[in-house]
Design a protein around this nucleic acid. Structure first.
Lengths: 223, 223
DNA sequence: TTGGACCGACCGACTGGACGGTTTGTTAGC
DNA sequence: GCTAACAAACCGTCCAGTCGGTCGGTCCAA
């Protein structure tokens, strides 16, 4: 879990600092809960404050604007998704396509109870440039990982699109169709057979660092 | 094209009525344009009115609320997508999977210039019940068509998820990855080979009528 | 055919509420 | 006592929806 938001230079400690960190976490969880249970339109700062048992000023203290709040929550969501993919990848033997299979399995989990974590931030894609950038960097990490995965990129892309489609369906309230499991099985088999185009060079693995919330343009803490 | 919005009982004629219909069409097109070019947040009634060269009162005259306007535009969008699928299906020999292949091809077109028509109405899914119902009826029509398609439902579902994923990627501003065409080819082949579970009975084809904008709960015209 | 009654299409100023953000205060840890 | 972590009242803007009104067709009786 990447709850520690990347080594703050002026690392603070103490009871107060820990309390503040807990408050931030509560705020982010409230955002996720509201969006998933009541829809994106219900996401107001006042509502977040009430849900997190903090005042409006408290929310604005940690996240200087609603945009910053959205961005942080979005990043938090993407991070935990990537953590989950990484966890699933570790459970799978190191054959070509391991990452892609883990990615698919993580997407499938969206239909379970953890669906509440799937934030419906789509509506912000176009209007918030920083969100667009965040999604782009997320996709670049994905491409980077796929490159090392030694799988036919056409298959990897297919899996990604299916994953996005599953996510979309789940946020729209759909339930699993009868043939769902068979479909997943088929895809896993596709991603399991080393169709490959030959393993690309694996040098520079993990060369692309995870960015998390740290964005150049939008500080999420203090001023 | 289903531009004729289902036989109005008290069928009016005359120049005024035609003008009114043209105005409604202009309003709906403005909604589509604004959402695709400026994002869902920029969609205000004032903006729609300005773009359609109509007054705010004029917009509200045809669509009694913003919700009704959104619903009508969404239905309009879904309708034209289904029209496109139907057109593509007619160009494909009548083998099992014809519908599914047409569906995929229609989704692929989202990456082209017609992407502007892909309304980003997702953000309304949860908050507007009538929209949820609309999407559900749309999916039921899809299921109905797939049933007649004589294809393995797992494949059909896979294609649908990929289509949704493509749509999602396009609204997020992504471009086609290098392996895109190969992926589509693979899927088309999957949907072309009659993996089947045997053709289901074809009786009652088109038994499920298209609903279009006519909803029980939300009139879009008059008062 | 014409004139008046009627109606739908459309206009635009106005209102009331919601909501993002600011400012000023208060408390507690270091 | 200085600063971070909040609280709470407050402000300004934006925006959906209302409402009184205008204008051009349409219809029908004389």
């Amino acid at each position: 879990m990447s709850t520690e938001r990347g080594a703050d230079p002026r690392a603070r400690v103490g009871a107060a600092a820990r309390q503040a960190e807990a408050t931030k976490e509560a705020i982010l969880q409230s955002v996720a809960r509201i969006v998933s249970e009541e829809g994106a339109d219900a996401l107001t700062i006042d509502e977040v404050a009430k849900s997190a048992a903090v005042s409006k000023g408290g929310v604005l203290h940690h996240f200087p604007s609603k945009e910053a709040l959205l961005l942080a929550a979005f990043a938090h969501n993407l991070d935990s998704f990537e953590d989950e993919v990484a966890r699933l990848e570790r459970e799978d033997p190191d054959t070509p396509g391991a990452y892609t299979r883990a990615y698919l399995r993580a997407c499938v989990e969206c239909f379970g109870p953890s669906r509440d974590d799937c934030l419906a931030f789509l509506h912000q894609f176009r209007s918030i440039p920083s969100t667009v950038r965040l999604v782009r960097s997320y996709k670049e990490r994905w491409m980077h990982r796929v490159e090392q995965d030694g799988l036919n990129p056409a298959i990897a892309n297919m899996v990604r699109y299916v994953g996005d489609g599953i996510w979309l369906a789940s946020t729209a309230g759909e339930t699993k169709p009868a043939s769902f499991d068979e479909m997943v099985e088929r895809l896993l088999r596709l991603a399991g057979a080393a169709e490959s185009g030959g393993r690309q060079d694996t040098a520079g693995a993990a060369a692309m660092p995870k960015q998390g919330v740290q964005n150049d343009d939008l500080e999420t803490d203090g001023r």
